[in-house]
Design a protein around this nucleic acid. Structure first.
Lengths: 362, 362
DNA sequence: TTGAAAGCGCTAACAC
DNA sequence: GTGTTAGCGCTTTCAA
């Protein structure tokens, strides 16, 4: 039976098979089919097999819209990242999807691209399509926070990564950026530096940037006076939100032409650091002999710069996994439990960009 | 009836407002509300205002699931990229979203991460949630192609970017990688090189990689014999699919230790090139004096390497825009029109990594 | 163990 | 201009 292969050539745009097609094809009730595909309730072995066979043959896949509408669950979650061209986002997403897909959830990524409007549009779309939850790793903004809090009045679970959102039902995962910033600064101090610049945020905007606060604190703890002139933000200061290689180049350039220049630069992230390194070479100075450079994030490329870049690794994949687990726990399990906060250690990765006494091929 | 507002304080997890709440609240028919929010059909000014007011007050947003189920249109499209940590993907997505969001479509990103399983899962999720279309920029695989072709039997529109998919209703956008590869190779030849290596694909796997074929053809056209020993793929050859900085490092290393080493390296992409540059420095050689290096893609960082990297720019944002336009044209308009193929020019960007006679600060 | 009925939230098609 | 009816594809509830 079922010589379906007789179709003349390409079937011209079939409508997707529905549960009723399966029911009709097997002669059982729609409900029985539903029970089979959901493995819920009792179905005799015989019927089950018949149904499964038809599901195969007719290539049936449940319509997620109908299912979601009825169940009030879509088994889909949204991931909101600031920016896609970013190893951090990639690893985070990797960790998240690893956990989610194992549990039968699909996930969709949305970017904010540094725009609150875009971020809201992304969240709105997620919400309107009734995602069961969202993992939000965008930078904090007032508008963004308000919007997220608004969504929380409804049945959307949220976990934030690397940022805050003050709400009793929002879990949080982050790396200890403060400690990372502290450690890398202290490393520079141990290497004998006392004029250490921070490139990537302006001092007034730094409060929300933990790695910067770690820098400030490390200076203080080591008795080095804080010098605001050694802190440079991007030309167009996007608040605590962002910093690129261009910003690093431009910021370092400014700081190098200042009266008394630093002997070390701690850049907000590895890309900023790479821009700064370029500015340093541009000025005819050597790294690390004239100026040491450190970054943050340990992006894969940081091992390949000239010289390789000292940086701070955060366990990004793990953050993704943890965030996904927290989210699933709330969705599938206890929606009312107390908020949880996971903070992972960072690791200082010392490379040649801050070490003078290692022989360099250069 | 319907004194729903009696809830004591913070509505403890309100259910989202539905169209019926609005109807009840304003005393009009559900259908009238629908007409107002969709701006379809005739509604008197008076009613319209009343409804809009209630929509505001009750913070109503249509349920995308219900709407999609009924309309058979979700106004959502999926973007499938191989890998997220990639300026190419970022720019592509930027271009796509720019067009889509202006037309009221939301878009969701999915990654294949070099895994056919993952790619299928992403497409399956897209399809099950009834996305109206997909823009697919993953690398070609047999399994992937089959899966895509299967989906095309149903009502999912597909546009591919930077790859092929042979189907009469699938449009395609790409950059002219062949010409780009040809141009950069010819540039190296003009700079006096005759032993030019290609790093990033093994010769047997190169057929699907147009930029590599451009390289081969440029050699031929200039009377330079092709030497298979000068072509190195990644250690674990993932077919035409991928190449990282690690691959570049490792591949260049191999080629540099060969008996007669090349005087120039054309790397499959900028990251591969950066890895190769590192290997060259590692070997105590100078760029470009001992070995010239060129990449492909013009990622933002390529301007910041030491020395800055000669590369080929493809207009990625534009590719995204064009792809989105083609997709919308099919979804909203003519689903049966002939397939369209847009091929954009690449641009050679010459920087110091291939030019000896420019003074370098190094 | 199976099935029938009702309805999730919305809109197309048709009355009025 | 506005309202009513029916139904998208599925699952929950209840009856058999």
């Amino acid at each position: 039976m079922a010589e379906k292969q007789k179709t003349h050539r390409q079937p011209k745009l079939s409508r997707p098979t529905t549960i009723r097609d399966i029911a009709a094809h097997t002669g059982v009730a729609v409900m029985t089919v539903s029970r089979v595909i959901n493995e819920s309730g009792y179905v005799s072995q015989e019927m089950r097999e018949k149904v499964l066979k038809a599901v195969q043959e007719l290539n049936y896949h449940p319509n997620g819209l109908a299912r979601g509408l009825k169940r009030r669950r879509t088994q889909a979650i949204g991931i909101l990242v600031p920016d896609i061209a970013n190893p951090f986002a990639a690893e985070l997403v990797g960790g998240i999807q690893e956990v989610l897909s194992a549990r039968g959830y699909s996930s969709f990524i949305s970017t904010s691209d540094r725009s609150t409007t875009r971020e809201e549009a992304g969240l709105r779309a997620l919400f309107d399509h009734r995602a069961d939850g969202a993992i939000v790793a965008t930078r904090e903004t007032k508008a963004g926070n308000d919007f997220l809090l608004g969504l929380l009045n409804y049945d959307l679970q949220i976990v934030v990564v690397g940022r805050e959102l003050n709400h009793p039902r929002v879990d949080r995962v982050t790396a200890d950026h403060f400690k990372g910033g502290y450690d890398v600064t202290e490393h520079l101090i141990k290497m004998g530096h006392r004029r250490i610049a921070f490139v990537g945020v302006s001092a007034p905007n730094g409060a929300g940037l933990h790695r910067y606060r770690g820098y400030v604190e490390a200076l203080r703890a080591n008795g080095i006076p804080f010098d605001e002139k050694l802190v440079v933000g991007p030309k167009v200061d996007a608040g605590p939100g962002f910093s690129t290689q261009d910003d690093g180049y431009e910021g370092a350039k400014r700081i190098l032409s200042a009266k008394s220049r630093p002997t070390a630069i701690f850049a907000r992230n590895d890309f900023t650091a790479m821009g700064a390194m370029y500015a340093i070479r541009d000025a005819g100075l050597a790294i690390p002999d004239d100026i040491a450079v450190a970054g943050f994030d340990n992006v894969p490329l940081s091992a390949y710069t000239a010289p390789p870049l000292t940086t701070v690794a955060q366990r990004t994949v793990l953050q993704g996994r943890e965030a996904a687990l927290l989210l699933l726990d709330r969705i599938d399990g206890n929606r009312q439990r107390e908020r949880r906060n996971i903070c992972l250690d960072c690791e200082l990765i010392v490379r040649q960009s801050t070490i003078k006494d290692i022989a360099r091929t250069d």
